[in-house]
C-alpha cells in the first residue's frame, strides 16, 4: 500500500478507528493484567499506575485524533463546496468530489472517535480499577 496518509488513499477513512482500536485494546489489557497480576497498587506521579497510564494513553490518542482531524480538515476546507461534482461526468471534477468524500469521511471519523476516546478514558478518573 502506498502512503496511508495520502489524500486519495481510502485507508484514510479508517485511520481514526484503527488508532482507537489499538488504544482500546491497550487500556483493556493493561487493566486486566494489573488486576490479575497484582501490580495495580503501584503509583506513577502519585496516581495509581492504571489511571495514570490510561490518562496518558487517552491524551496521546486524543492528540493523534486531533491531528488526523486537522489533516482531514485541511483537505476538506478547499473542496467543501464540490459535493455536486459527485454527479459530474468530467473526470477531473469527479476526482475533486472523491477527495471531498474521503476528507469529510476522515474528518467525521476523527470527530466521532474523539468522543469514543473521551468516553473510554473518563471513567478511569472515577471508577476503582478492580
Amino acid at each position: 500500500m502506498a502512503n496511508p496518509l495520502a489524500a486519495d488513499n481510502p485507508i484514510s477513512i479508517v485511520l481514526a478507528p484503527i488508532v482507537w482500536s489499538v488504544y482500546f485494546l491497550f487500556v483493556y489489557v493493561l487493566n486486566s493484567v494489573a488486576c490479575t497480576k497484582g501490580f495495580v497498587g503501584l503509583t506513577l506521579f502519585g496516581f495509581g499506575i492504571v489511571p495514570a497510564t490510561v490518562v496518558i494513553a487517552t491524551l496521546v490518542t486524543l492528540a493523534i485524533m486531533v491531528w488526523l482531524a486537522g489533516l482531514a480538515w485541511s483537505r476538506f476546507a478547499p473542496v467543501r463546496d464540490t459535493d455536486d461534482h459527485v454527479h459530474s461526468a468530467d473526470p477531473e471534477l469527479a476526482r475533486l468530489a472523491r477527495r471531498r468524500f474521503m476528507a469529510l469521511a476522515g474528518l467525521l471519523q476523527a470527530g466521532l472517535h474523539i468522543l469514543a476516546t473521551l468516553y473510554v478514558g473518563l471513567p478511569a478518573l472515577l471508577v476503582p480499577e478492580c
Partner: peptide, 11 residues
C-alpha cells in the same frame, strides 16, 4: 474488574 467494565460500557 470494574474499570474494565467501564471501558466496554463506554464503547
Amino acid at each position: 474488574p470494574h474499570l474494565s467494565l467501564s471501558f466496554f460500557s463506554a464503547a
